[in-house]
């Protein structure tokens, strides 16, 4: 088993207009590694939704993408307010995004459901006042 390729990103929480840059970079990196287009689509969309969430709700955070022979793992960690009710947050249509974000076309309550939709497994750990850690896996 060879070591995983690791991509690490700091997600800047200050600027919503530039949010999503890490995911676009990951898409580029995966293409260079010769990963199949449908896998790239899944990984980059799931990560983009996570990145957008970190910027909207948590003031940014850190993202790691680990590429193994048989899977890609995406780990998102923030020190934001945490998710009060994960089951509720996972429901399509539930959102706590502010109006200025909604006017840009986000906040439809589809972010977390999309992350689940495009990955083979998704695990959320969250503590109020401490932050959230999300681990997603896409099998190759």
């Amino acid at each position: 088993m060879t070591d995983a390729v690791r991509l690490h990103f700091l997600v800047d929480g200050e600027d919503f207009t530039s949010a999503g840059q890490a995911s676009v970079q990951v898409k580029k990196n995966l293409r260079q590694l010769g990963i199949a287009p449908e896998i790239i689509r899944k990984v980059s969309i799931a990560m983009y939704e996570g990145e957008i969430n970190m910027v909207i709700h948590a003031g940014g955070g850190e993202a790691d993408v680990l590429i193994y022979e048989d899977r890609i793992e995406i780990e998102l960690v923030d020190r934001g307010p945490g998710i009060a009710n994960i089951d509720l947050a996972m429901q399509e249509g539930f959102s706590t995004a502010p109006d200025n974000i909604r006017s840009l076309g986000f906040g439809a309550g589809m972010g977390l459901p999309n992350m689940k939709r495009y990955t083979d497994s998704m695990h959320i750990e969250s503590a109020l006042g401490e932050g959230t850690r999300i681990l997603m896996t896409v099998r190759l």
């Binding site: 207009t17 287009p37 939704e49 840009l104 076309g105 986000f106 439809a108 589809m110 972010g111 939709r117």
Partner: peptide
């Protein structure tokens, strides 16, 4: 026009029709 909805549903090679025009449509 709801971008996460589009990300969940639009398929590769689709023509995407929208009235949303901010920078996020590019991503």
């Amino acid at each position: 026009d709801l971008l996460s909805w589009v990300m969940g549903r639009a398929k590769s090679e689709n023509v995407w029709i929208t009235i949303m025009s901010n920078i996020k449509i590019v991503a």
